[in-house]
Every structure is written in structure tokens, then in C-alpha cells.
């Protein structure tokens, strides 16, 4: 659906994106996970044709580079910086974006209604967006990406600065969109979101794509061992293993009646450990 080949972009001395190649498949939710300044937004910007790469190419399946109007019409983007007009209502904001994509009349009205409903903003649709909460603004920002029903969605940190209620709405919306067959690129620095939502994840740091795969694949390949802690009345035990369940069974089977096991913990590796393993740093640095 979207193929990035060897993309590079620098701003002065700062190399924002340093040779990223990536293929996002039709119908998948692809997570781009990385810390602040990793180059996620720059990658998204180049994918939609807003930022001209220094080198490398972007190709939308069957359509070519996103530099023509027709190709852009296939993409829906929810930028990281909220792109809504505070002095327009939710409906008016969406109508504007709809018109920019060539919609009008009855069809536009219906779409606006449907999309507002999808993101749960119908009750506030005629209020000015400036009066919305941060989470509601995020949802409207997402809705604006959906108005023309594009097959490819680029969502740049769609849950940034959002309360739990809005976050759940957004995550549900993304899931629904995925079910409806959209191809979604989702950037975030919350590994939980990537882990919950994404079919595949690419981890990006300092402009480089470190690894790509399903969450399980990444964890398996780069997450290291699980950490098992066995708690007993007298003697605690802590060890690393690739097969935590087998190890625990072994421990329980040979348990000493004089010092019974009181608790078992498994710390499985996750994307955080993948990132830590690959960069030596934590995602939240």
C-alpha cells in the first residue's frame, strides 16, 4: 500500500530521517514507535508529500508519489499538531476539509454526520472547536482525516495529550477502521498502544528504522529473556529464561515442603525491552 525507499531528510545539521525503507501492507495497522525526535513525524510528512525528501522515494500502491492531487485524495492524515480551526464548529471544520477533497451537498452532510458519530462528537457538533477539551480536539482532528474515506490513513500520535476517555474512543475508532479494511500507519511513543493495536511495528530512533515485525516477532528476536521471580517464605529466587512457564513448572514440581512457594511473577519482555535491547536506552528518555 505504501512503500518508502531509502528516505532521507535533514534540517541543517540535524538528520531527521536517515535512510528509512519500509513497506506497509494493505489492510494492516502499522505502528511506528519511537521516542521524541526519532523522525516519526518527518517520515509521515514525506509519506503524504508535505515534506520533500532529500533523497529516496515514496510510492502509494498503484498511484505513485503523493505529489499529485489524485494521490493525495487517497490519503487521510491526522497531523500531530492539531489542525482544526478553533473558531469553527466541529461540523464546519469537517465540512471545510470535505470540500477540499471535492465533496459537497448531501453527500458531504451525510459524511460529516457519520464521522462525527464515529468519534463520538455528535452532541457537540455545532459548538466551536475552541471550546472542546484536548481529547475532543484530538478526536475532531482524527475525524478530519476520515471525512473523504481514504483507504490509507496516517495518524501521527493520535492520542497525544488525551484523557483516558478520549483515548479509548480513539483506540476503538482505529480498531473499527482496521476492521473496515483501512491501511493505517500509527505513530506513537506509547508502546502499550503499539502492542495493543498494531499488526506490525517498526521501531525508529534517531532517524533510523531499527527493526520491523509483529510484536511477538520483535519481542522474540530482540526482547531478551523473561524474568521469573519465585517468592517463598524464606528464600526468593530470580532468574532469566527463554521458557518461563517450563521453568516455573520445574520449580513448583521440586518444591520444598519446608519452604513453600508463595508467589510467582513473570516479567515477559515487551516492546520497551526491545527498544532497550536495541538502543541501550528507555523509550521514555
Amino acid at each position: 500500500m505504501l512503500r518508502l525507499t531509502n528516505l532521507r531528510k535533514s534540517y541543517g545539521n540535524i538528520v531527521a530521517v536517515d535512510g528509512i525503507s519500509l513497506e506497509v501492507r494493505r489492510g494492516e495497522v502499522f505502528g511506528l514507535l519511537g521516542p521524541n525526535g526519532a523522525g516519526k513525524s518527518t517520515t509521515i510528512g514525506m509519506s503524504v508529500g508535505l515534506i520533500t525528501p532529500d533523497s529516496g522515494t515514496v510510492e502509494i500502491e498503484g498511484a505513485g508519489a503523493p505529489t499529485t492531487d489524485r494521490v493525495r485524495g487517497h490519503i487521510g492524515i491526522a497531523p500531530q499538531a492539531l489542525a482544526i480551526y478553533d473558531d469553527l464548529s466541529g461540523t464546519e471544520n469537517l465540512s471545510l476539509f470535505g470540500r477540499l477533497y471535492g465533496l459537497g451537498g448531501r453527500e458531504l452532510k451525510d459524511r460529516v454526520h457519520r464521522v462525527l458519530d464515529l468519534v463520538g462528537l455528535l452532541p457537540r457538533s455545532s459548538d466551536r472547536a475552541g471550546g472542546y477539551s484536548g481529547g475532543m480536539k484530538r478526536r475532531l482532528n482524527l475525524a478530519a482525516a476520515l471525512i473523504h474515506e481514504p483507504p490509507l490513513l496516517l495518524l501521527d500520535e493520535p492520542t497525544a495529550g488525551v484523557d483516558p476517555q478520549s483515548r479509548n474512543n480513539i483506540l476503538d475508532t482505529v480498531r473499527d477502521l482496521a476492521k473496515a479494511g483501512k491501511t493505517i500507519i500509527y505513530t506513537t511513543h506509547y508502546m502499550e498502544e503499539a502492542q495493543k493495536l498494531c499488526d506490525r511495528v517498526g521501531i525508529i530512533d534517531k532517524g533510523k528504522l531499527l527493526c520491523v515485525g509483529t510484536v511477538d516477532e520483535l519481542v522474540m528476536a530482540h526482547g531478551g529473556k523473561s524474568i521469573v521471580r519465585i517468592e517463598r517464605a524464606e528464600k526468593h529466587e530470580r532468574f532469566e529464561t527463554d521458557a518461563p512457564v517450563r521453568e516455573i513448572s520445574r520449580v513448583l514440581a521440586g518444591a520444598d515442603a519446608g519452604d513453600p512457594v508463595t508467589g510467582v511473577h513473570i516479567d515477559r519482555p515487551n516492546l520497551e525491552s526491545v527498544f532497550l535491547g536495541m538502543t541501550g536506552r528507555s523509550l521514555r528518555d
Partner: peptide
């Protein structure tokens, strides 16, 4: 400043 200009540009308008 607000990014709406960039947003307009990402739409299929020149």
C-alpha cells in the same frame, strides 16, 4: 503556527 496551513496543503489542493 497552528498547523492548519500544513493541513490544507495535505489535501488535494495546489
Amino acid at each position: 503556527q497552528r498547523g492548519t496551513l500544513v493541513r490544507l496543503r495535505s489535501a488535494p489542493v495546489s
